[in-house]
Design a protein around this nucleic acid. Structure first.
Lengths: 136, 136
DNA sequence: TGAAATCGGACTATTTAAGTCGTAGTTTAA
DNA sequence: TTAAACTACGACTTAAATAGTCCGATTTCA
C-alpha cells in the first residue's frame, strides 16, 4: 500500500532520462528500456500514456521517438502520476473514488473528512514537487 | 494506488469508536461490525493485529472484548497502519522494501533518493496526525 | 520496398486485497 | 459444569489490481 506503481516509476525514469538528453531530436522507447532494463513493451505503453496526456510528443517512423514538451521545472510529479494511473486523482480513501451511495458504510463512516487532511498533504507533495528535483 | 486499504480503514474506525465509548469496560468486535456494517470475521482479524501491536488489549470470554490502551491523542495514524499492514513502514518506492541487489535496476535507478523526499512527507503526515484529530 | 519506430487493443500471469470458514481456546453466569 | 459469548489463528477462496506479453496496424524515411 501507498506504493508508486512500476508504471509510474518507469514513467518518471523515462521523463527524467529525456530531460537529461542534450543533443538529438528524439528519444526512443527502446533506448530507455535498454538503458534501465525496463521491459520494452510495458515501457511503450507507458510512453503512450504520457503522449496522450501531452507531456511528450510521439514521432513515428525511422528516427522517430518522443520529444519532451516542457522543461523539467514545469512538470509536476502529479502530472506523471495522473497520466499513467487509471484513477485520475491521488485518492487516499477509496470512498473518494466512488459515488456516495456505492459506499455501503457512507452513512456510518465518520473518518472520511478528517482523513482528507492527510490526502491533501500527499496531493500537495506530488503537486509541489517537479521533475527538476529528481534530475540529479 | 496510494489508497489506504480496507483493513486500515476498518482499524481506524474501530479505534475511533472505542475512543468515543464513555462507559463500560470492553468493546466487542461484533458491536463495531454491526454499527459500521463491517464484515465481522475480517474486523476480528484487524482487531487481532491491533492487539498484537499493543494498541488494544483483548479480553476473552463472556463480557469480553477489547480495551483501548492509550488516549486518542497518543495514537498516531502510523501506529494503526503499521499494526495492520504487512509492510512495516509506509514505503513509497518498491525498492525500499527490498534488498539492494534484488532490485534489477538499482544501479541504473537514479530516482530513488529524490523520491524519498515525498515519502518523508507522507510518513511525516501519518506520524504527526493522531487519532484525536479524527474523533469529531 | 523494407527497416525502424509508434499505436492500440486483447490477452495472460502474477500478486495483492478482501473476505470466508472451521476449529480451538477462554471466560463467566446460571 | 455446561452453555453462551467472546477472542485466536491458520487455511482457504474469491475478486481485483498490477505487471507484463503479443500481435497486427500505421507511420516514416532511406
Amino acid at each position: 500500500m501507498l506504493q508508486i506503481s512500476k508504471k509510474v516509476e518507469y514513467g518518471l525514469i523515462a521523463i527524467r532520462h529525456m530531460a537529461l538528453q542534450t543533443g538529438g531530436c528524439c528519444t526512443t522507447a527502446k533506448e530507455i528500456s535498454d538503458r534501465y532494463q525496463i521491459p520494452f513493451t510495458l515501457l511503450a505503453k507507458v510512453m503512450q500514456s504520457l503522449s496522450r496526456s501531452g507531456l511528450i510528443i510521439p514521432r513515428q517512423g525511422v528516427y522517430g521517438g518522443y520529444i519532451l514538451t516542457k522543461s523539467p521545472a514545469n512538470i509536476k510529479i502529479s502530472d506523471v502520476i495522473n497520466a499513467i494511473e487509471r484513477v485520475p486523482q491521488v485518492a487516499l480513501m477509496q470512498c473518494e473514488t466512488e459515488t456516495e451511495d456505492s459506499c455501503t458504510i457512507s452513512h456510518h463512516c465518520t473518518i472520511k473528512s478528517p482523513l482528507l487532511k492527510i490526502q491533501q498533504t500527499i496531493n500537495n507533495a506530488f503537486q509541489t514537487m517537479t521533475l527538476q528535483e529528481i534530475l540529479y
